[in-house]
Nucleic acid binder design. Sequence first.
DNA 1: ATGTGC
Length: 456
Amino acid sequence: MHVPGIVFASEALLASAAEDRALDQVANVAHLPGIVEASFAMPDIHWGYGFPIGGVAATDVAAGGVVSPGGVGFDICCGVRLLRSALSEADFRAHRDGIMDQLDRRIPRGLGKGAIASRALLVDVLERGAHAALEAGFGTERDLDRCEEHGRSAGADASSISERALLRGGGQLGSLGAGNHFLEVQVVDRVVDPAAAKAFGLVEGAVTVMIHCGSRGLGHQTCTDHLRTMGAAMARHGISVPDRQLACVPVGSAEGRSYLAAMAAAANFAWANRHILAHEAREAFAAGSGIALSDLEMDLVYDVAHNLAKVEVHHVEGTPKELCVHRKGATRAFGPGHDALPEDLRRVGQPVLVPGSMGTASWVLRGVEGNPAFGSAAHGAGRVMSRKQAQRTESGRQVRADLESGGISVRPGSVKLLSEEAPYAYKDVDAVAEVCERAGLAARVARLRPLGVVKG
DNA sequence: ATGTGC
């Protein structure tokens, strides 16, 4: 190990991580060439491909530091977008079935399914992200201001995306996908930090919409493609790692630059994907409630990724260095004053969106000063139960009945997949948020409680 | 996560 492994967790949260070998992965990551400070893991750590999910690792670009696709994940630029609204919980309940039916009809979802936008938009989206979607008539200019990277990752090169990836992604632009991806109608349940909540546009009792999805088959194929070429190139660069799933090459190498260009293009697909879905959600709310779009005030709070590698400047032992920061199932969490934040949020810190599992709460946190993990925080609840195990515990029908009896309206794409995403299959998101705060990763702002779930 | 495999 070049550096130590550091896991931010409580004993209760750590118990499940130890079982599934995620801690071995933290140690493996510490062997990556050029890694600085530590191999970090967030409180929602669980086992993943090569890196643990919840893993954060930064490598020194000038010192031959590497980039590793396993440190980004298969779902490149998977992330979360949160919209606020002027509706109260009572307003929503008065129009609930109409809105949920509109969402059901308008939000494409499920394995291999899509899409809202035309295939013709694909190449433009890969190069320019949400900007291309905006020009095609989706969303608003302001949406771009409230999106990490302005909804457009720099250095994207559509020509580094394979034909096969284009084929898979072409029909999926504007779609949710499956698994733990969702669109959820929520209500602000509790405000912990009133000043920050106000700056984010969040009011206790108001309805919000959270969208969790990524780059679909296009990102998955892109990861697969580059893992293969990287695996072959490693020997040429004289790199050996304790796990072949940690395939990596120097950031500055031809293979490294090619991966980062393809990763940025796939990220642009994901930014645009969430941008388009948010547009569709607004339309569904207006159509389902009969309330004018302008009165709904469904403004974007923020959109932030939790599966990306980015070259950022951070201080290492007092000197600023260009680092390739891998966040794999970890949310960027920049503190107050950071120039990457929109001006009206710069005093408060970046909104950090932490979705819980289906049917449980989600959290909005804010970035704080002195974050010990290159400006990163948790990204969700994290699994405690395998998909198989969850399926055996309760049927999808039962899970649905449980949610409905708790007053949560459900529109599943597949009832069978619903069982894999049951609340008991995940860690306690309240505990994850609390540990984030106590570890100085981010501070709690507001808790969101689900009212309606749209899933793949 | 994912047209659930090399």
